[in-house]
Amino acid sequence: YGTLLGSRACVHMAAAAWGSGFLNALLHTANTFSLPLCHGNVVDQFFCEIPQILKLSCSDSSYLREVGLLVFTAFLSFACFVFIVLSYVQIFRDVLRISSEQGRHKAFSTCLPHLAVVGLFISTSFFAYLKPPAISSPSLDLVVAVLYSVVPPVLNSFIYSMKNRELKDAVKELIQRTLFHQQ
């Protein structure tokens, strides 16, 4: 990134990401603490998240304010996703200009899985935060929460680790052992 964009652009992008994340967390935290809870204080989830807290709220105005914040956050997240997709379109255009088949394969082997992980994260988090309350259930909420909070970081680690030749060989060996032991 530093070569193509310059260090100043990288610093601005990092500052925008950190700043918007901090502002988003601050707004949601401040609003969440102002919610009056009249349905107890037990959350049907393994971690405390906004949709679960909203189920406990008894104030329509606070609820609507938080839903407005969630819609705004969804808009920002979607804008980021569009930026990522446009960036990948540019990357794919440049990768297709690479003359060697091996070079194109190497570039696509990282880009496509990463884009799939980002897509999984954005789509499941949109679903978790913007789905109508009528289709909510504790088990569905739990599955969706795991899909956007646990699976993408695990997959990202796996994707980037697979660039390591030793790890690739170890995974291939593990798969072969598993397949031969099952037969």
Rank of each mutant, 00 (worst) to 15 (best):
Y1M: 01
Y1W: 02
G2T: 01
L5C: 01
G6C: 01
R8E: 03
R8G: 06
A9D: 09
A9S: 15
H12S: 11
M13L: 11
W18K: 03
W18Y: 12
G19K: 04
H28Y: 02
N31W: 10
F33Y: 14
L35D: 02
L35G: 05
N41H: 12
F47K: 14
L56T: 06
C58F: 07
C58Q: 13
Y63I: 00
Y63S: 07
E66T: 11
G68C: 04
L69G: 11
L70Q: 14
T73Y: 00
F75Q: 10
F75C: 14
F78R: 12
F81K: 01
V82L: 15
F83M: 14
F83L: 12
V89I: 10
Q90G: 09
Q90S: 15
R93F: 02
V95E: 05
L96C: 14
L96W: 11
S100V: 00
Q102I: 01
G103T: 06
R104L: 02
H105T: 07
F108S: 05
S109E: 04
C111Q: 06
P113V: 01
L120S: 04
L120Y: 03
L120W: 09
I122W: 02
T124H: 06
F127L: 13
L130G: 15
I135S: 11
I135Q: 08
S136G: 15
L140G: 08
A145G: 13
A145V: 05
V151N: 06
L155W: 08
S157F: 15
F158H: 07
I159G: 10
E173H: 13
Q176N: 10
L179W: 08
H181V: 05
